[in-house]
Design a binder for these strands. Structure first.
Lengths: 225, 225
DNA sequence: TTTGTCAAAAATTTTGAAATTTTCGATTTT
DNA sequence: AAAATCGAAAATTTCAAAATTTTTGACAAA
């Protein structure tokens, strides 16, 4: 397999996000080297870069690991994602214009189309190719939601956290059956409606409700305090 | 100069945060190699790691640069820092107990002691050694403020953003004279009082007021919208 | 059984050089 | 003059091996 480092980066990132490496699994450059037909140092270089987006853990003198998983970690990542998405969406609602509404509607349209198909026949979601379509559409919708926040740093951080969120949740091997899609169709719709009507509080609530299923062993922070 | 990579990392980080490299300045492993008596690849490795904390920019096939600066960038970093600190402080006020109050009081005590000395005789702040003391005390106060937020990710992100904030602002070469310290003494006090009295809105406002001098060419977002 | 030691094995980091890509300036073309 | 071309120089990436550090497992001591 002959590939340049961009492709190796993309491939490793994809595998990380889809839990093709177990949580906390050691990532040894020397071992991955063969897989990609490059030197161990090239792999090291790439893993160092994946560290920046939070998918890989690095510790001096003891190498790399796929991000570990735990209930606390999952709670943390969903709580932080919720916070960033709420802030980003709130700012977008204040700053975004017609073009934002158009972009968001378009992203939602694509997403809900897919989700309704998956709801109709659960088998479709079995195919990795279809899941990848949904995955992209879901990302696109949430990214568009915060796209007019006016803060590149918030947006970039959100992107990284979204990736880590997916990494954590895919590792959980949840059931993506028909009922899952029924639920999230409604949730995405609620977020869209609140956003388009510029109802800040409703939108924050809808984002929270969309993500709250991912809290484990405890309640979301806002309910705890 | 013979040092291990930990020391090189620390030294480069310190230089970056104190604007010893100009904004956007190219960081060439081959050039820095001599400075540290190690190979160019070791420097590359370290720069890749500094990328994770946002002090260094990396672009494929075109190397590393110290983070660039611009009014937009400075606005973004202070806006994002404000947001994270407000959230972190709010959560700490809800979750933190007596030990948090004690830690925060202690951190503030050290900080205000230094600041009053600097206020009394402006010359003290000229010495780099003294500024480093203040720098550490300031960080400690703000970190303690959010320390009970219950979210490791929020805290780690805040740490990175705080570092970038410092990098941006030090590059501005602002005047750290007596009047500067007079102003921030009051601001830190206001934050402390609001935090200890668990007055969420007052604390958010105090954090905002503390950072608002750093907005340039535009008003802080909350005032724009 | 537990703890400690120590050498072998495995893994990580560092190196110096080769391969590749980008940058820069001079020259040519439009 | 402006834009395109081309080759040399500079910078970046990749490599394979050497140096260093950590981990492992066997054996000894408490």
């Amino acid at each position: 397999m002959k590939t340049d480092s961009q492709a190796i980066y993309a491939d490793l990132k994809e595998k990380l996000m889809n839990a093709r490496f177990g949580p906390g699994e050691k990532l040894k450059p020397a071992a991955l080297q063969g897989e990609y037909g490059c030197s161990a140092n090239t792999v090291r270089d790439i893993l160092l870069r994946l560290t920046k987006v939070g998918l890989v853990e690095f510790e001096m003198q003891r190498g790399f690991r796929a991000q570990y998983t735990s209930p606390d970690k999952r709670n943390d990542v969903t709580r932080f994602r919720t916070m960033l998405e709420q802030e980003g969406a709130t700012l977008s609602m204040k700053l975004g214009g017609i073009s934002w509404e158009a972009d968001l509607s378009a992203a939602h349209h694509k997403l809900s189309h897919l989700e309704r198909e998956f709801e109709r026949s659960g088998d479709l979601a079995e195919q990795p190719e279809n899941m990848k379509l949904w995955t992209n559409a879901e990302w696109s919708f949430h990214d568009t939601l915060i796209s007019r926040c006016g803060s590149p740093m918030l947006r970039e951080t959100y992107e990284n956290v979204y990736g880590q969120f997916r990494q954590q949740m895919v590792a959980q091997e949840r059931d993506f059956g028909r009922s899952y899609f029924s639920a999230i169709i409604a949730e995405h719709q609620t977020i869209l409606d609140a956003a388009l009507s510029r109802n800040v509080e409703a939108c924050r609530q809808a984002i929270h409700d969309h993500l709250k299923r991912n809290y484990v062993d405890t309640k979301p922070l806002e309910e705890v305090v």
